[in-house]
Write a protein that binds this DNA or RNA. Structure first.
Length: 307
RNA sequence: GGCGCGGUACCCAAGUGGUAAGGGAGAGGUCUGCAAAACCUUUAUGCGUCGGUUCGAUUCCGACCCGCGCCU
């Protein structure tokens, strides 16, 4: 029997140098990059997402960048399905797939799968959100207690998005969500997974984040945001994310440019911290204590891929 | 030099004669289809300094120090 082919995953907080590391590995091992960053999926969002540039993309095949229209939204389940198809294609070409990204939930959905639950029901969500607004999160929590008390015990009554999903699952499937969980997930098969995690020094990372957020504004983030607003209106979901949110506020005259930059820097730092918390729980990660553009780190990563 | 206002945690800030709200930051955590989202936990024996009054002062009184404003 042949052993399963290798799948490399590069994970880490924002600005830790995932792109640089992935390109180094890609060139050395004839790899192909598969994006695992929720916002980079959307087209026309460039500066604020720190996507690989055109010249970087020319150095190796890149997948799952710019595949969605900014007015619709991708979910973790949809991402996992498309990404698995992409992985299968790469495998059939005998190339090394390198999954690169910072969206922990999407990575988990891809590698470990989600439970076999129903997809979203927009009408139901609309009603629940309406109720939450009128009666508060406790009300939704009480509803969930009746439907699935075990699930309710695990979700805080203020966490409305999770309460809505749990109620949605129970109602549309007519089963308890915790019962469905017991049926397990549908993990990715057919690959040996090597997880490389970038873990640079916290202070150094925050300094780099501050610098990069400033550069985004210098490079025309506000102008890009203006175009996006004109083209898609404020319905474009990624407009409410890191950096774009502040640029929109600036364009509306709600804040000045200094506040916008500082707000974006702060948001990126907070995001990086949340990512680290998530990734610490990720199993079997080979941690690299530094930035992905550091040649020494790239060398260690390459050795791990070789081994 | 005189008068006025103010000095509360890393930052902003409320407050009371009976033992310090809140927000932000920082740190830690949760996460099973919106996740660059949402949510949870946590941080001053201390309220500029030194005295006084009082059973008890961060809160009242006095002096001093620092900052801001005005006046000469």
């Amino acid at each position: 029997m042949f052993p399963d082919p290798l799948l490399v995953v590069v994970l880490g907080p924002t600005a830790s140098g995932k792109t640089a590391l992935s390109l180094a590995l890609t060139e050395r091992f004839h790899g192909e990059v598969v994006n695992c960053d929720s916002v980079a999926l959307y087209r026309d969002f460039e500066i604020g997402t720190a996507k690989p540039t055109a010249s970087q993309r020319a150095r190796a095949p890149h997948h799952l960048l710019d595949i969605a229209d900014p007015t619709d939204f991708i979910t973790a389940g949809q991402y996992a399905r498309v990404a698995r198809e992409t992985l299968a294609e790469i495998k059939s070409r005998n190339k090394l797939p390198i999954v690169v990204g910072g969206t922990g939930l999407y990575l988990r959905a891809l590698l470990e799968g989600l439970f076999p639950g129903p997809q979203r029901s927009e009408e139901l969500r609309e009603r629940l959100r309406d109720r939450a607004e009128r009666k508060g999160g406790q009300h939704l929590h009480e509803i969930l207690c009746h439907l699935d008390s075990d699930a309710a015990a695990k979700i805080h009554f203020n966490d409305i998005p999770k309460l809505i999903r749990a109620i949605e699952v129970c109602l549309t499937s007519r089963q308890k969500m915790t019962e469905m969980w017991k049926r397990g997930r549908d993990p990715l098969t057919g690959f040996r997974v090597l997880r490389l995690g970038l873990n640079p020094n916290r202070d150094a990372l925050y300094a780099r984040i501050n610098q990069r957020a400033q550069h985004m504004f210098d490079a025309g983030l506000v102008e890009e945001t203006k175009c996006l607003l004109e083209k898609y209106g404020d319905a474009a979901r990624p407009l409410s994310t890191l950096g774009y949110k502040q640029a929109v506020q600036l364009l509306r005259g709600e804040i000045d440019s200094k506040t916008a930059v500082q707000g974006a820097q702060q948001a990126h730092r907070n995001y990086a911290k949340r990512q680290m918390t998530w990734f610490r729980r990720e199993p079997d990660v080979m941690w690299l204590e530094g930035f992905g553009d550091d040649p020494a780190i790239q060398q260690r990563a390459a050795l791990a891929v070789d081994g």
